[in-house]
Amino acid sequence: MTSCHIAEEHIQKVAIFGGTHGNELTGVFLVKHWLENGAEIQRTGLEVKPFITNPRAVKKCTRYIDCDLNRIFDLENLGKKMSEDLPYEVRRAQEINHLFGPKDSEDSYDIIFDLHNTTSNMGCTLILEDSRNNFLIQMFHYIKTSLAPLPCYVYLIEHPSLKYATTRSIAKYPVGIEVGPQPQGVLRADILDQMRKMIKHALDFIHHFNEGKEFPPCAIEVYKIIEKVDYPRDENGEIAAIIHPNLQDQDWKPLHPGDPMFLTLDGKTIPLGGDCTVYPVFVNEAAYYEKKEAFAKTTKLTLNAKSIRCCLH
């Protein structure tokens, strides 16, 4: 018999989150649709729960009410004593943790798909938090293969000092899905179709896995975050240069030392320094102006996964 890495157990509980950011409308629209008619997301033997994560922000069509829901799922915020004085999103995070967690427990949901849009030209993107997770690498390989020839990129946010504390991190297997470009507060049919297909293929993978299909060893190309880059700023902290036209919409493309990065209003080009080629992502993302992030630098690498098969009882 072929030796293989056996994944822990079959997958039982899956959640699909929309509206973690209330103005990213593809996930909101799909989740609302699936709450009314969820036939397309159901798979035999699998509990799939669509869920609106930040209903107040969705109602106002804004990213958040008090603070970013997708950055506060750490033990400090989840452990705060519940009171009306807490920011709305912290209270909501505790409610979500109660419903789908608790985080880092045996009772937490197996998989959470968190649906997002970006204003950046990132196409279909899967966000991975753990480079050693054979199950998710296999799932992402399946999704990428199923979507081809449509490109699907994998963004690895594993980093020693950049801690995200994402909404989906309460699950055993957290999956971020990011599709763009799409303006905030807008629905685009092409973007919706791409996100819908990503979810379909992900659920198909889980179904095949649960039925005992063995997935042979595989490898995927990923883009691992190195650092986030702020806009150049003046002495008052105001933005002093904008994304250069040569960099705009060039997510995932190589940016070499000396290539144009920013452009000042008086026409001066600010190039990339250093001696390493990087791959920019979230270029000129609207939501990241407040976070002082013009783009993120990534490096390209390959992740390998062992063969996996479900432990059938």
Rank of each mutant, 00 (worst) to 15 (best):
M82I: 13
N133H: 05
V48G: 03
E178W: 15
N133V: 00
H201D: 03
C4Y: 12
L25A: 15
Q94T: 10
D107P: 13
H21K: 05
L30D: 03
V222G: 04
P232V: 01
K224N: 07
K300I: 08
Y279A: 03
L265P: 11
D74W: 09
A305L: 02
L46M: 14
A305G: 08
Y109L: 00
I127C: 07
K103A: 11
K306C: 12
E84G: 14
D130A: 00
E178S: 15
I308Q: 03
E84L: 14
P271K: 11
H116S: 09
V58N: 03
S307G: 13
T20Y: 05
P87K: 10
L86Q: 12
E47R: 10
K213L: 10
E238M: 08
I111D: 04
L69H: 06
A287T: 14
D66G: 08
F215E: 03
V222P: 04
K103G: 11
Q182L: 08
H21D: 01
P183Y: 02
V90K: 09
E178P: 02
I112A: 11
N54R: 02
F209P: 00
I225P: 13
M139N: 00
Y289P: 15
F135N: 04
A305H: 01
N37C: 09
R91D: 09
C124I: 08
N210Q: 07
S3Q: 14
K197Y: 07
L115I: 07
D259T: 00
P50W: 04
K32T: 08
P280M: 01
E89F: 03
M198W: 05
E84Y: 12
H256L: 08
G273K: 11
Y223H: 11
P151K: 09
K80C: 13
N23V: 05
E89T: 02
K163N: 13
I65L: 11
D193F: 14
E36R: 11
D193W: 13
S169E: 06
H5W: 10
Y289K: 14
R196G: 01
N210I: 06
P174Q: 15
Y223L: 00
L78T: 10
R43K: 06
L272H: 15
Y153S: 10
R43P: 06
G19K: 04
C152P: 03
T145C: 13
N54E: 00
Y289H: 15
G212L: 01
H98I: 12
C4F: 11
V283E: 04
N134G: 06
F113L: 08
N246P: 02
F29V: 12
I199Y: 04
K228A: 09
N77T: 13
V179R: 04
A39L: 11
L150A: 11
P254I: 00
A305R: 04
N133S: 12
F73R: 10
N236V: 08
R92W: 05
K144L: 09
N54G: 02
I41L: 13
A39S: 13
P260G: 07
K13E: 01
I206L: 11
I65M: 11
V31F: 04
L128Y: 04
F73I: 11
N23W: 00
L136W: 04
Y289A: 15
N97W: 09
S146Y: 09
K300V: 07
I52R: 00
N77I: 13
Y109A: 06
Y279N: 00
Y223K: 06
T264L: 05
P149C: 00
E24C: 10
T125R: 03
L115R: 02
N236W: 08
R56C: 12
E106R: 13
K59I: 09
P55T: 12
T166C: 10
N54S: 07
E95R: 12
T302N: 07
L303H: 01
P183I: 01
L78Y: 11
Q182K: 05
E129H: 10
P257G: 02
Q184W: 10
D107Y: 12
K297S: 09
Q182D: 00
L75K: 11
H5L: 12
R233Q: 10
F113G: 03
S105I: 10
I308T: 05
E40P: 02
C61Y: 10
V229F: 01
S105M: 11
D74H: 11
H313E: 15
A296E: 08
F135D: 04
F295W: 00
I170W: 08
K81G: 14
R91T: 14
Q250K: 13
K297W: 04
R92K: 11
T125K: 00
G123H: 05
G258L: 06
A286R: 10
P55M: 09
L301R: 07
T302A: 06
E9W: 06
K253W: 01
L156M: 10
V154Q: 03
Q182M: 05
T264D: 08
L301F: 10
I16V: 09
Y231H: 00
R132S: 15
R196M: 05
G19C: 02
F140S: 06
L86H: 11
N23A: 04
G123Q: 05
Q94S: 12
P174Y: 15
M198L: 10
E211R: 12
V28L: 13
E84F: 13
L136F: 06
F282I: 02
V278C: 09
N133D: 11
I308M: 10
I11Y: 00
M195Q: 11
Y88R: 06
I16G: 00
I65G: 04
T302Y: 09
D110P: 00
K172M: 02
G38A: 14
K213S: 08
D107T: 12
L187D: 01
D130C: 01
S146N: 15
Q12F: 00
Y289G: 15
V179A: 07
Q138F: 06
F295Q: 04
E158M: 02
D114G: 01
N236E: 09
D66A: 09
I41H: 00
R309G: 07
H116L: 07
K224D: 00
R309T: 08
L99Q: 12
G18C: 02
P87Q: 12
E221D: 14
L99H: 11
D234F: 08
Y64G: 06
D190K: 02
H10Y: 10
Q184K: 09
E47M: 10
L187S: 08
F113P: 03
P55G: 08
P55C: 10
T166F: 08
K300S: 01
G27Y: 03
Y231T: 01
T277E: 09
F205H: 06
I177M: 13
L192T: 12
E285W: 02
K292I: 07
L255I: 09
G22P: 15
Y142K: 05
P232C: 04
Q12K: 15
G79R: 13
L162S: 15
K49Y: 09
Y153A: 08
I220W: 01
P260D: 07
L78I: 12
E89V: 01
E214I: 13
